[in-house]
Protein backbone atom coordinates (compact mmCIF):
# COMPACT_ATOMS: atom_id res chain seq x y z
CA UNK A 1 0.00 0.00 0.00
CA UNK A 2 2.79 2.38 0.93
CA UNK A 3 4.65 1.55 -2.25
CA UNK A 4 1.61 2.65 -4.23
CA UNK A 5 1.40 5.89 -2.30
CA UNK A 6 4.98 6.71 -3.14
CA UNK A 7 4.81 5.63 -6.74
CA UNK A 8 1.66 7.48 -7.70
CA UNK A 9 3.00 11.06 -7.45
CA UNK A 10 6.11 10.13 -9.40
CA UNK A 11 4.07 8.71 -12.26
CA UNK A 12 1.84 11.77 -12.18
CA UNK A 13 4.81 14.11 -12.43
CA UNK A 14 6.39 12.08 -15.20
CA UNK A 15 3.19 12.41 -17.17
CA UNK A 16 2.97 16.14 -16.50
CA UNK A 17 6.58 17.05 -17.24
CA UNK A 18 6.25 15.91 -20.85
CA UNK A 19 3.45 18.38 -21.64
CA UNK A 20 3.43 22.07 -22.40
CA UNK A 21 0.35 24.26 -22.02
CA UNK A 22 -0.14 27.88 -23.03
CA UNK A 23 -0.78 29.74 -19.74
CA UNK A 24 -4.32 31.10 -19.74
CA UNK A 25 -3.49 33.70 -17.08
CA UNK A 26 -0.49 35.73 -18.30
CA UNK A 27 2.17 36.95 -15.85
CA UNK A 28 0.99 40.59 -16.24
CA UNK A 29 -2.52 39.49 -15.20
CA UNK A 30 -1.40 38.18 -11.82
CA UNK A 31 -1.18 41.41 -9.81
CA UNK A 32 -4.21 40.48 -7.70
CA UNK A 33 -2.94 36.96 -7.06
CA UNK A 34 0.37 38.41 -5.84
CA UNK A 35 -1.39 40.53 -3.20
CA UNK A 36 -0.43 39.22 0.28
CA UNK A 37 -4.13 38.86 1.18
CA UNK A 38 -4.28 36.06 -1.44
CA UNK A 39 -1.59 33.97 0.24
CA UNK A 40 -2.61 30.62 1.74
CA UNK A 41 0.17 31.02 4.35
CA UNK A 42 0.26 34.73 5.18
CA UNK A 43 1.46 34.21 8.76
CA UNK A 44 3.37 30.93 9.18
CA UNK A 45 3.86 31.22 12.95
CA UNK A 46 0.20 31.96 13.66
CA UNK A 47 -0.96 29.23 11.25
CA UNK A 48 1.40 26.71 12.82
CA UNK A 49 -0.06 27.40 16.25
CA UNK A 50 -3.62 27.16 14.93
CA UNK A 51 -2.95 23.71 13.43
CA UNK A 52 -1.27 22.64 16.66
CA UNK A 53 -4.37 23.58 18.70
CA UNK A 54 -6.63 21.52 16.42
CA UNK A 55 -4.22 18.57 16.28
CA UNK A 56 -4.21 18.25 20.06
CA UNK A 57 -8.03 18.44 20.40
CA UNK A 58 -9.19 16.58 17.28
CA UNK A 59 -8.37 13.16 15.79
CA UNK A 60 -7.99 14.42 12.22
CA UNK A 61 -4.50 15.35 11.07
CA UNK A 62 -2.61 16.07 7.89
CA UNK A 63 -3.06 18.11 4.70
CA UNK A 64 -3.16 21.33 6.73
CA UNK A 65 -1.04 23.16 4.18
CA UNK A 66 2.28 24.71 5.05
CA UNK A 67 5.21 22.85 6.51
CA UNK A 68 3.58 20.21 8.69
CA UNK A 69 5.93 17.58 10.01
CA UNK A 70 4.21 16.57 13.22
CA UNK A 71 4.78 17.79 16.72
CA UNK A 72 4.82 14.48 18.63
CA UNK A 73 2.45 15.93 21.19
CA UNK A 74 -0.21 13.90 22.92
Amino acid sequence: MLTNHRLLPVLLLLALSGCSIEPWVQPYERARLADPIMSFERDPVANGFRHHVYQTREAARGAEGGGGGGCGCN
Binding site: C19, S20, I21, E22, P23, V25, P27
Partner: peptide, 8 residues
Protein backbone atom coordinates in the same frame (compact mmCIF):
# COMPACT_ATOMS: atom_id res chain seq x y z
CA UNK B 1 5.01 24.31 -14.20
CA UNK B 2 2.65 25.22 -17.06
CA UNK B 3 3.81 28.84 -17.20
CA UNK B 4 3.76 29.20 -13.42
CA UNK B 5 0.07 28.34 -13.26
CA UNK B 6 0.66 25.12 -11.33
CA UNK B 7 2.90 24.36 -8.37
CA UNK B 8 3.38 20.75 -7.38
Amino acid sequence: MFGDLTTV
